[in-house]
Design a protein around this nucleic acid. Structure first.
Length: 233
DNA sequence: AGCTGATCATAT
DNA sequence: ATATGATCAGCT
């Protein structure tokens, strides 16, 4: 039966306890517990799983530019995984700032967004009904020195091009772990940016994304530490 | 099969 | 149009 949506967790322990309590459960069960219907698929509701988990964990809803758990400084990210537990998709991080501004990794949105992430793997094999997909074991992650160095290198390389007005030269092929791809309603959406000549021009909005190969490394490396077991291959 | 470019929903 | 949440679908 439907219970009222939980209030925000008071502290990290409470958040992790709730998250661990959801591990292994099918999405339809989680949704039903909150009085929510499960759609047939995510084709027209791509963010449904993420929003379901926000509700289940007591994240502050809405579209405010804040972490999901502002008090705890934790960002929640669902991670669609295949039968082997490997990420099937890249992970959206944030919008690419296209209006000049600072060139400073330490103050960047990417770094802030990724400072502390609660990864929540979700079974995502095609053919497995949405409601029957089960949640995996959540992982609280902070980038280690090596991971941050990789992110920083890509970010600085990409933002160098953006700041030089060379956005049109960037494709999703740039960046070892962090890439820039369109992030818009469709290919006609436009926003302002600054050209190489310094004039304002219209362009497609872009977002930063983590490559699936990078999130795979994250969960494999850090689960090993967390469980003291070997990853399956 | 993996990756890139395009797209879907909702709230402000 | 911006933010939030992402996955779709076609090409290599």
């Amino acid at each position: 039966m439907a219970a009222p949506p939980p209030a925000p967790p008071a502290d990290m322990d409470e958040l992790l306890a709730r998250a661990h309590g959801l591990a292994g459960r099918p999405l339809a069960e989680v949704a039903a517990g909150l009085g929510l219907a499960t759609p047939a698929d995510t084709r027209r509701e791509k963010g449904w799983i993420g929003q379901l988990l926000e509700t289940a964990l007591g994240a502050s809803a809405g579209s405010a530019a804040l972490p999901d758990f502002p008090r705890l400084g934790v960002e929640l990210k669902t991670l669609p995984v295949d039968a082997r537990g490997r990420p099937r998709e890249s992970t959206y991080v944030c919008t690419v700032p296209l209006q000049g501004a600072g060139f400073d990794w330490a103050a960047s949105w990417v770094r802030r967004k990724l400072q502390c992430v609660l990864w929540f793997p979700v079974q995502s094999e095609t053919g497995l009904a949405l409601g029957e997909r089960r949640l995996g074991m959540p992982l609280l992650w902070r980038p280690d020195a090596q991971e941050e160095a990789l992110l920083r290198r890509d970010w600085e390389e990409l933002m160098d091009l953006v700041c030089a007005g060379r956005l049109d030269e960037i494709s999703a092929r740039h960046g070892e772990v962090l890439q820039i791809r369109p992030k818009a309603a469709d290919s006609r959406a436009l926003t302002d940016t600054v050209s190489g000549e310094g004039t304002t021009v219209r362009t497609l909005p872009r977002g930063f994304y983590l490559r699936a190969s990078f999130t795979r490394r994250i969960i494999e490396r850090h689960y090993v530490v967390a469980t003291a077991g070997a990853p399956r291959d």
